[in-house]
Design a protein around this nucleic acid. Structure first.
Length: 274
DNA sequence: ATGGTTGGGATCCAA
């Protein structure tokens, strides 16, 4: 009997790039350093016919799935494994470019989301953007419950614009009234996780007692010293994939380079998802 | 209590 050799784990990154056209040198630095097999982007802020895809092709990505609009939003998936487009959901009745999905070679479906930030005021009667965010959250919860019945293999990544745990923000108490960490959002996100049994792939490796951030505001002159961050970017896997998880990390160094995005990439590795 | 920064595409909006 030939010995089974362990396949090399697949690496998967998610990154809110905050305009892909404004970040090409940053993107090149990231690809040179980390070279993920699959790369999911949010806030590309570019129409599909203007997407600067040459850099990604030069780095060996043969799959390019993009969904953009002028100025705002926009999601994309690049891969060196062959992926098939699996859908583009319109969230909360809008055709905003906030979701795109792909099927991996082994049938796992990868969902890339950009959840609305929700504006500044956490009150649905005063802020339509917050109401919209909660609508999207409720819809994703229903969608997650429907997925549970199918019991397939799925990965959900993206900028969910919610930091669910107390250790996902620099000050739990100070941020209880701040959009991204209000109880209605954090409890809503945990309900969404429970609806599918989503496993937080990053907290699988980084204990919930440890603080961990993926976003630091531009409005802080010394973001690193102040370290007033939040963990807004997530990678979740369906329960069947939990035992395949190999590692997870935030590539914080990318936040410190010239012309950085305000988000850092989140990278996981897992066995045999492709 | 307030303002701080960034990108896109118009002279302001979204984050």
């Amino acid at each position: 009997m030939p010995k089974k050799t362990a396949a090399k784990p697949i690496s998967l990154a998610t990154w809110n790039i905050n305009s892909v056209r404004a970040r090409l040198p940053l993107m090149k630095a990231f690809l040179d350093a980390h070279d993920p097999d699959i790369l999911c982007l949010q806030e590309t802020k570019v129409r599909d016919d203007q997407f600067p895809h040459e850099l990604f092709e030069q780095h060996g990505y043969t799959t390019r799935l993009i969904r953009g609009q002028p100025g705002y939003n926009g999601v994309a998936i690049f891969s060196r494994l062959p992926l098939q487009l699996a859908g583009k959901l319109n969230l909360a009745g809008r055709d905003d470019c906030r979701h795109i999905a792909a099927t991996l070679p082994d049938g796992t479906v990868l969902h890339n989301y950009y959840v609305p930030a929700g504006g500044d005021v956490p009150d649905v009667t005063k802020n339509d953007k917050f109401a919209h965010k909660l609508d999207v959250l409720a819809e994703m919860t229903k969608w997650s419950a429907a997925l549970k019945k199918k019991a397939g293999r799925e990965i959900l990544v993206g900028d969910l614009n919610i930091a669910p745990l107390e250790t996902d923000v620099w000050s739990h108490k100070k941020l209880l009234d701040v959009v991204s960490h209000t109880p209605i959002e954090t409890e809503g996100l945990l309900k969404m996780m429970a609806a599918r049994g989503w496993v937080d792939a990053v907290r699988h490796f980084v204990p919930p007692a440890e603080t961990l951030f993926s976003w630091w505001s531009y409005r802080s002159p010394d973001w690193e010293a102040a370290d007033k961050g939040r963990r807004l970017d997530h990678v979740w896997v369906s329960p069947q994939l939990q035992d395949s998880l190999k590692s997870a990390r935030v590539a914080k160094a990318m936040r410190g380079l010239e012309k950085a995005s305000d988000h850092a990439p989140v990278i996981i590795t897992l066995d045999s998802a492709g």
